[in-house]
Design a protein around this nucleic acid. Structure first.
Length: 782
DNA sequence: CAGTGAGCGAGCTTCCGCTTGACTT
């Protein structure tokens, strides 16, 4: 029996700490929260002053049972969860659920995982801070009330299974607003004029005109002047500058840099970091702190002195800037900064390398720069050319690490300029004017959205990645690449006293791994903004956080705070359910020229669609789904009319009609009540009979190859060849055949055995996971 | 692999923050 039981949140942490504490201490992990609100009836008793109903979730039952037993046997139980709101609540739940005797229970906290810090914590135990626990309960209850009252409104007013919440709905709103800014953005063109000059030492000097010029006429006018002008250097200014290293990584900055430098999704970053953490290679990866322990700074100092010398050393402490940071952990850093590399997968190595460099660089000296600005005047015009160069005088931390930026406008690398003197004359070699265009605000990537959320104080390090996943999973947002479009632009070149004009082409607007709001994401955001403006407001989280702080300071009673929010909120929910109409994002596009009926775009039961006429007309309305790349917000009447050109009758084949149309699985050809999907490169609006017949024949051939065996005794049982190898089809269900069996030799009896065997095991294990899919199939089949 | 439509059916869906595995496709 061990006298002391220490409970922390993470098992990896437990393992490390156990080593520091010696034989009398057993360290166990709670694996995060051990209780949560029940899912039935909100899990909150509104009538009883919002009394929470806590239960232990199924996947936590085993760990609770084990901890309970160990706690019973221990003389002292040390609750060592993190020192923040959630950590305090975990300690309190443990106290309650494990039924701990308050006299033998002690609450301790530490900020860094070192022997001294932990032994120090053991010497200074305290009581559980009930106020802080209450702040957490208020947070939890508020989120449940918002999520579980808002989501059902969406099920009734927009579409089933949708979700809304304090965090996710705001994340989607950010994307929707940005997308609309982009849609409404009007790009303007201007001319960027760059001169290549020759100094009297025959060196080349590149300089840009200090102003943009809007019209081609004005540009040409200026170029004409340039022909005749004399050029003189009127100014050479040298200014020292410096660059400082960024703070060590937090969860959010790690996600951003891994996205920019390694191309990782935020989910990928977190799972690779988790692996490194579990292997003891880095500190905890879910943190909002930029703080390094004194031990870590000491280790970084040694590394820098050994590797780069004293000139490169400058230790510092960084301060957290982000809103609502709770700083229960250190920044993300290598556990042993001496280790510049680690073993592991390619991803682990690369992420570790990034963390190592960022940590070490944060304790290095600034880079020293010299910025040179050279101005060149024209003898016959007010405009002037300016050349800016930057020279690195001392690299400092840049020797190790340079943070990248989200800025997509590839700025030219400024380099060294030739040595020139004020008053010196130069001549031009050539002067070019290129038409450029103003750029719409950038679309969000997963990582830049996390950055924005963090700035607004919405969400926590442990939820950034799951939130990004949820909004994609619910269909509010899609991450994808989009192809750019061709754009023409004009370019003039003046050389040898002659101006030449060229029309050039470039590709613009291409997007890679960007987040786009979907039609449903826009409709839901509009609906929520209209009825629940308060919750969608970017400041909502910040303002409730202030109140949580007051609860934590004992200045506010949590149930009062909840009541003040809930009463009016609940009224709005009821009001909205009663009075608002269904929201399908309806947009009128104009009238159909043939029938004169109005054409509208809206969300239908199967996604975005266009419709001619309405339900109430005598004739049934006609429907067509929007195609990939088309959106409710932007589809035009012309595009809609195009969609109604289907189904198309192509003619006859084998005395039966051949019809091409688009169904829920994409474009298809129908012939003799059989369907053939069109391959991607075929266009249903243009395909002709000959090609359709080819496709029909191809499909027939494939079907012939598909069938391995059909049993005469029972034609329902078929052995078929599928995408993943042979399988058995029976009563519209499919059953896999294990690899050891040769499919062509199966007998009917053997097939039935396989079917029976799978139904047994299938029902036990699968039911839970496939529930959703089964339910969906039912509704779509009928 | 199979499936190619535009609200009757029964019952389900959902939140945010703490933590890791156990599952396939």
């Amino acid at each position: 029996m061990v006298e002391n039981l220490v409970i922390v949140e993470s098992p990896a942490k437990a393992k490390t700490i156990e080593k520091f504490l010696g034989k009398d201490f057993q360290v166990k992990s709670s694996f995060g929260h051990i209780r949560d609100l029940a899912k039935k009836n909100l899990g909150i008793d509104i009538e009883k002053d919002y009394e929470p109903q806590y239960i232990v979730p199924d996947d936590k039952k085993a760990i609770v049972k084990e901890l309970k037993k160990l706690a019973k046997d221990a003389k002292i139980v040390w609750l060592a969860s993190d020192e923040d709101r959630e950590g305090e609540a975990i300690a309190w739940h443990l106290l309650k659920e494990l039924d701990l005797d308050i006299k033998k229970t002690k609450r301790i906290v530490f900020h860094e995982i070192t022997k001294e810090a932990i032994q120090g914590a053991i010497k200074t135990p305290r009581l559980i801070d009930e106020n802080l626990v209450n702040a957490q309960q208020a947070r939890r209850i508020l989120d449940r009330l918002v999520g579980f009252e808002l989501s059902p409104v969406l099920w009734k007013k927009v579409r089933p299974s949708l979700s809304a919440g304090r965090v996710q709905s705001v994340a989607v709103k950010l994307l929707v607003e940005r997308e609309r800014e982009i849609i409404n953005f009007k790009s303007e063109s201007f001319f960027k004029i760059t001169g290549l000059f020759k100094t009297n030492k025959n060196e080349e000097l590149k300089a840009d005109l200090s102003e943009r010029i809007k019209s081609p006429e004005k540009t040409l006018e200026l170029l004409e002047k340039c022909k005749k002008a004399a050029y003189n250097i009127t100014d050479v200014v040298k200014k020292p500058g410096k660059k400082s290293p960024s703070a060590p990584f937090t969860t959010s900055t790690l996600q951003q840099e891994a996205s920019r430098k390694l191309g990782f999704s935020v989910g990928q970053t977190m799972s690779v970091a988790q692996k490194l953490y579990e292997a003891g290679k880095i500190t905890y990866m879910r943190t909002d702190s930029v703080n390094l322990s004194t031990m870590a700074i000491g280790a970084a100092k040694n590394v820098i002195l050994n590797e780069y010398g004293e000139k490169y050393l400058k230790t510092r402490n960084f301060k957290t800037k982000s809103k609502g940071a709770q700083e229960a952990h250190e920044a993300i850093r290598p556990t042993f900064i001496e280790n510049q590399e680690v073993s592991g997968t390619d991803g682990e190595k690369r992420l570790y390398d990034l963390i190592w460099k960022r940590t070490v660089a944060s304790q290095m000296s600034e880079a020293q720069l010299e910025k040179t600005t050279i101005s060149i005047n024209l003898s016959n015009d007010e405009h002037k050319f300016v050349a800016v160069g930057e020279v690195l005088k001392f690299d400092g931390f840049l020797k190790v690490y340079l943070e990248s930026t989200d800025d997509e406008n590839e700025e030219e690398v400024k380099g060294l300029l030739p040595a020139v003197n004020k008053g010196e004359d130069v001549e031009y070699n050539s002067i070019g004017a290129v038409e450029r265009f103003t750029h719409h605000p950038a679309r969000f990537t997963e990582a830049s959205l996390v950055k924005k959320l963090e700035e607004l104080g919405i969400g926590r390090p442990s939820t950034y990645a799951p939130t990004i996943y949820t909004i994609q999973n619910r269909g509010y947002v899609i991450k994808e690449d989009r192809e750019g479009k061709d754009r023409e632009y004009i370019s003039y070149i003046l050389s040898n006293n002659e101006i030449k004009e060229q029309k050039k082409k470039e590709i613009t607007g291409a997007e890679k791994k960007k987040l786009f709001p979907t039609d449903i994401g826009m409709v839901v955001t509009d609906f929520l903004s209209e009825h629940f403006d308060e919750i969608l407001n970017y400041n909502f989280t910040a303002s409730v956080e202030e109140e949580f702080d007051e609860i934590a300071n004992g200045k506010l009673i949590w149930s009062k705070m909840i009541d003040k929010f809930y009463k009016p909120f609940h009224k709005t929910v009821e009001n909205t359910l009663e009075t608002s109409s269904r929201s399908v994002g309806e947009r009128a596009l104009g009238d159909d020229p043939t029938s004169g009926k109005p054409i509208i775009a809206k969300i239908g039961p199967y996604g975005a669609m266009v419709q001619i006429g309405s339900k109430d007309d005598e004739e049934k309305p006609r429907f067509a789904s929007l195609q990939r790349g088309q959106h409710l917000e932007t589809i035009t009447l012309e595009e809609a009319l195009e969609l109604f050109k289907l189904p198309r009758d192509l003619g006859q084949y084998e005395d039966k009609k051949v019809v091409v149309s688009i169904g829920r699985f994409g474009p298809y050809v129908r012939h003799d009540s059989k369907f053939v999907s069109l391959p991607k490169e075929e266009n249903p609006y243009k395909i002709e009979l000959d090609r359709a017949i080819e496709l029909i024949e191809e499909k027939r051939e494939k079907d012939r190859l598909k069938t391995i065996k059909i049993f005469e005794e029972d034609p329902e049982v078929q052995v078929l060849n599928g995408r993943w190898g042979p399988y058995i089809s029976y009563n519209k269900n499919n059953y896999k055949i294990s690899k050891e069996i040769e499919a062509s030799k199966l007998t009917l009896e053997q097939c039935m055995d396989i079917i029976k065997a799978e139904e047994k095991t299938g029902k036990k294990g699968k039911v839970k996971k496939t529930k959703k899919i089964v339910a969906k199939k039912k509704t779509t089949k009928k």
